[in-house]
Design a protein around this nucleic acid. Structure first.
Lengths: 193, 193
DNA sequence: GTCTATAATTCGATAGAC
DNA sequence: GTCTATCGAATTATAGAC
């Protein structure tokens, strides 16, 4: 009975796996890596804790699967040179207002070395690659991407983790108009020194 | 034998308490709140774990004592208006390059509600108060302070927690020249919208 | 595939001798 | 003030029945 034909009905286990990942992302985002327990995640997903181990091997394995993240950066070569900063801030705000995976990653990166490593990879690879697409001096690409990451992650940290009142209260478009010029300068400004 | 005269010799307990706080700051900074155990802190301080409980009551109490933090912001009224951003970045960099308390607070704030509350207090009180000293519209003071905090904490997060290579490699004065204009605009730029 | 039962640690906190 | 001994709770992870 080894069925090789494509399957039309999803396996039960597929929906179970999806429910686990959903609950895991929620818990990791809300509580961080240590406080988010497999038991609590399983309870949220209405399944037995041992199923989590069966499907994902360990807590680390579960986190690795739940924290898969693609920034989905737009093609910056199609953006007018003067609107790069604005485009990026708006993209990030909409990207993570509706997806708590980045918040989960952000919280976990503070205490979990694996999560920090993944965060480094995401920004070093995806963001640096996007910055490299338009004509800046290759020697400064990594530095510019790092500076952009510092403001973008600082925005996320103060708005979603620490929840500084002024940063929580600002409307998305107000944040865009304040922060876009910062990114614009990091991306296209002249190198100092 | 209730001695009320001022004491010239410090109590033994004073040096013990200081050793505990030192070790606690190190562990909280390196591991975050959950992973830093009372047992490990006591071992670092070369004392018995029960002494930590005796002196600080609980792990929360120990953290509260270890994470006492003063930004020691300079008097901004004595700074030329055009050098506010530069002064602030340089101050923060030197302030926390030699004191791991802020890193401890930063890591703990991600998962510990009490630490997040303390971080809110520090930036809402100390930084907002400093921003209020020079003549900006009081209606925008909190917002400007929040934006400054977002870039300052983003710098700390990427440099000391996530350790993004480009942010780690930049020399302090290079960071100053890149980030100072950002803070300068948040502090003195016109309100958009 | 799903669950029960439990092993093996580890932690914060307490009681009490000295 | 300092230490030993330990409690009680919580965790990840495993073994195995159904």
């Amino acid at each position: 009975m080894t069925e090789t034909a494509p399957r039309t009905q999803p396996r039960r286990s597929d929906t179970t796996r999806a429910a686990i990942l959903r609950a895991a992302r929620e818990r990791f985002a809300a509580d961080g890596y240590e406080r988010a327990t497999i038991r609590a995640i399983a309870a949220d997903a209405k399944i037995d804790p041992s199923m989590v181990m069966r499907y994902y091997g360990s807590k680390e394995g579960l986190f690795a699967a739940a924290a898969e993240f693609d920034l989905r950066l737009p093609d910056l070569t199609a953006v007018p040179a003067g609107q790069l900063g604005e485009t990026l801030v708006r993209h990030f705000l909409t990207r993570w207002e509706g997806d708590e995976t980045l918040v989960a990653l952000l919280r976990a990166a503070s205490t979990n070395p694996g999560a920090a490593e993944r965060m480094r990879g995401i920004f070093a690879d995806q963001l640096t690659a996007a910055v490299a697409t338009f004509g800046t001096d290759p020697a400064t690409t990594a530095r510019r991407a790092g500076l952009v990451a510092s403001q973008i992650l600082g925005l996320a940290f103060t708005r979603y983790i620490v929840r500084l009142p002024p940063m929580v209260d600002l409307a998305p478009e107000e944040l865009v108009s304040w922060i876009a010029p910062t990114l614009q300068r990091y991306l296209t400004g002249r190198v100092e020194n």
